[in-house]
Simulated assay, not measured.
Amino acid sequence: MNNIEDAGIVFRNITKRYGRDASSGLAVKGISFEVPRGTLATILGPSGCGKTTTLRMIAGLESPTSGEIFIGGKNVTTLGPAQRNVSMMFQSYALFPHMNVAENVMYGLRMSGQRDEVARAKAVEALRGVGLVGYDDRLPSELSGGQQQRVALARALVLEPEVLLFDEPLSNLDARLRREMREEIRALQQRLSLTVAYVTHDQSEAMAVSDQIIVMNQGLIAQQGSPRALYETPGSEFVAGFMGEAMLFPATARADGTVTVGPLTIRPRACKQQGAVKVAVRPEAWRIERQGEGLMPARLEKAAYLGAVHEYTFATELGPIFVVSSDLSDVLTPGEDVRLGLGVHGVSVVGSTD
């Protein structure tokens, strides 16, 4: 990191231990990262990996056992939530059922001592920003799940925080509404140049909203980078599997940069290893051909039509292989014999077999 002043959030060697003695396990194990101002970073990982603990330490709801936290260039390690200029949007929305929409959005402003007329004007503007003009007098019980989430978002934004935090914000919504809301959150973040830390366990959600993804596993950062970098060039088996569906195959890497997977020879990007390795292959990386040299024979066992793609399972000398094909013009039926090849995208060397 070149300049703390340029970063929205900085973690330096942060650990978190629950319990009073050294024998207590570490929930977070010496992690460091930064979120540049005006960007959205998603902390992604399975249950128990430390992602929510990390978010709560940014908010000041948990104190680190060791290390330093900076927000907007200021060391906030020992400061409480009220001193950090951070707003957090929870999974449950946490709206007051007895207050109408405007009163819910005004609540934080009132608590900070702002006059009612000023707070109401800011609340109305915040509601306009999330598409809820005219909803001021409705109760939360009169709103849909998506509308309740917009109210919670307006309540967080109206405080004009230095950093906005999201804890699994879309988990209570159905699939269509999740997609709409993640698009709205991303558009709002970019329009207002907000610094955002966003926690989820959903890989597709993380890829859709993020400038940067921080993948955590067992209290450590497994890998961090852009969504595309983590998807196309995962650094480990864990990241390859967590960033989307992938099959692992034993392979041999050679000095000229080529890799042999069964009867196939490919040239993955950024392959720096030699000898016995493991290769992660995404389902969409496979090419289906009717004939051709240097390809692998395969027999179709299962087929499913999903509208935009076909899903196929082939029997091959490498075992069953799952393939996603966007070619809707050439439809295969079980029992057909074809040949499989591999492209460059979606194929990564993720480690040795030692």
Rank of each mutant, 00 (worst) to 15 (best):
V35K: 03
A41H: 04
V35M: 10
A102Q: 08
S112W: 06
P64E: 03
A59N: 01
F90G: 08
P81H: 02
V101S: 07
M88A: 12
G72S: 07
G45D: 03
Q83H: 14
I71M: 03
M89L: 07
R115G: 13
P64K: 04
G73A: 06
G80S: 14
Q114E: 13
F96L: 12
S47Q: 09
R84L: 15
M111R: 14
G48I: 09
G45S: 03
L79V: 06
R115D: 14
Q83A: 13
I43A: 08
R56N: 11
I69R: 00
N75V: 00
N104A: 14
S66Q: 04
Y93E: 04
S63H: 04
L55Q: 08
G113Y: 14
N100K: 07
T77G: 12
L79N: 12
G50F: 00
I71L: 09
N75L: 02
V101A: 04
I71G: 04
N85H: 12
P36W: 09
T65F: 02
F33R: 00
K74R: 04
L44W: 04
M111L: 14
A102V: 11
I71P: 01
F96C: 08
R56M: 06
A59R: 02
P46Y: 03
M106T: 05
S112V: 01
M57F: 02
S63G: 06
P81F: 03
G72I: 03
S92T: 12
G60V: 13
G72W: 05
P64R: 01
P36Y: 07
T77H: 10
R37N: 13
R37C: 09
Y107W: 14
F70I: 15
C49N: 11
T39N: 10
I58Q: 11
L40F: 02
G113F: 13
L95D: 15
P46E: 12
G72N: 07
P97D: 01
